[in-house]
Design a protein around this nucleic acid. Structure first.
Ligand code: FES
Ligand code: FES
Lengths: 135, 135
DNA sequence: ATATACCCGACTAAAATAGTCAAGTTTACG
DNA sequence: CGTAAACTTGACTATTTTAGTCGGGTATAT
């Protein structure tokens, strides 16, 4: 099981922002340099974060991004869902009655993977952005 | 985060075997039919399981596979590692001192992903094959 | 004016995934 | 003995996902 780089970078970038507590906007260029993440990749990521109201943008010179909520209330699960990075270990469509094998009942492992999803999501639900900057 | 089909099928197939408690060998053909998994894919999977001593094989007519240990002691983590399906959410080489960004120190999110790995692995470590057949 | 910084859609090389194919070997059973 | 059932093994492939890049915008402080 891997984590994709978009999510990893998103958390990294937001943690970077949060560690500079002055509420001036932070430019992606700065994050890019400090964290060694491609600027153009960051732009892609922040578009998503913005659309999902995790950051807001200020355009023009001296512009950048600011967090819309405090790092102490921002959950990792919010960040992940903003990037469509959802945990899904089942092989079937969870919204359907059908199983991963195409049959009309769920397979013998379905409940296990369901439990696993819950287990992993709990981690993201309980972690706040703040938790990783007070290090 | 997804789970690959090899691991999912491996657990499914082993659970199938474990639910027939008579200790006669179970043929892949039977598992294939009961669980709707491609026979040839199962062969590939069981090669791995055999090499890692999770099952043993009996060749020839009336042959098949049998579990080498009891379902009550077989941990999911053993199955996963047999298939090289390891949890790894960090972006860096954990054995190296270097960070995911190529620098000489670990990045600001490294400890978080490390914690996540531990969290997920704990699930596989605590789950036994038996847990999913007494349903 | 102009440089800084966000905005956004399209594109792509490389890797991973989810299998299939083909050609064996071994052994129970009639 | 012959044969079918079942394991063994390596190679191959189509598709999808990943991890970005490219290129052309628009807004605004100075
Ligand atoms: S994983 Fe949902 S039915 Fe198999
Ligand atoms: S994830 Fe290990 S250094 Fe970034």
């Amino acid at each position: 099981m891997r984590l994709n780089s978009k999510s990893r970078y998103a958390v990294m970038a937001l943690a970077d922002m949060a560690s500079f507590i002055d509420n001036k906007p932070v430019s992606l260029r700065d994050i890019s340099l400090r964290q060694s993440i491609s600027l153009q990749y960051l732009e892609q990521i922040f578009l998503r974060l913005k659309k999902n109201n995790i950051v807001k943008s200020i355009r023009g010179v001296k512009g950048g991004y600011v967090l819309t909520k405090d790092a102490s209330t921002l959950k990792l699960s919010e960040i992940f869902s903003a990037l469509d990075e959802n945990v899904k270990t089942t092989g079937c469509d969870n919204n359907s009655k059908k199983g991963c094998n195409g049959r009309s009942t769920k397979c013998i492992t379905h409940n296990l993977w369901d439990e696993l999803d819950v287990h992993i999501n709990a981690f993201f639900e309980n972690k706040k952005l703040e938790d990783l900057i007070k290090n």
